[in-house]
Write a protein that binds this DNA or RNA. Sequence first.
DNA 1: GTCACGTGTAAGTTTCAACTGACACGTGAA
DNA 2: TTCACGTGTCAGTTGAAACTTACACGTGAC
Lengths: 112, 112
Amino acid sequence: MTDDRTGDQLLKMLTALANPHRLRILAALHERQAYVSELARELEMSRPLLHMHLQTLEKVGLVVGRHEVSAEGKALRYFEVADFDEQLSPERITEAVKTLSRHDEPDGKAKR
Amino acid sequence: MTDDRTGDQLLKMLTALANPHRLRILAALHERQAYVSELARELEMSRPLLHMHLQTLEKVGLVVGRHEVSAEGKALRYFEVADFDEQLSPERITEAVKTLSRHDEPDGKAKR
DNA sequence: GTCACGTGTAAGTTTCAACTGACACGTGAA
DNA sequence: TTCACGTGTCAGTTGAAACTTACACGTGAC
């Protein structure tokens, strides 16, 4: 499950991780899951900004969100970290690059 | 050597890796070392662009360069990949974030 | 009804990485 | 002396990511 990740997927994962806010978010959610506003307070960032970063993380599967209704009837959005494990080494990268798509060739479905 | 990497260093490494060109560069250099112009042809990218990416990679230590004079007296700049091995998991990230510096507090040497 | 707290998102700005094109310099070979 | 090939760097453009502000909506408590 961790080795059949394509180069494109690895690149997306790296892109998602290459941000201090998102690293902090992952660390915080690893301690305990939380809902958005709660997490925004804890990390001292604006809620829209956190929302954006959470979307980025969720899109690549590093985090999973779910809806939950609190006892007071509030519709909360809880997030928790996904359980990933990637290795970064020259060998691993060389392997991944083989399945990394190029965005310059006119043979694909790109506009030509 | 791989565990005492601070959060800041990890972030820099991730930032450097989060780019398709740089992944390709690492893969190519893992196969065999090469000098700049040579590599630019192989990867079909402009030399200034490659030069820039190589600098980025070298700055974080993912690649090391050295000067070498060819038989014809050309001063060539050879690069090879460094031997790195980093693990990416929620645990590892949580650990790294503890040593991740914040850039919003006025206690540092930042302009205030 | 209005406040406090939660959700989502759209619009606009700012910041920065990525990229191109051009210049400068050095060498050996024709 | 000019060409082919190597090096390095700078100035300027561009496009995407990051971020702020503001709006819209829903609920239970006062």
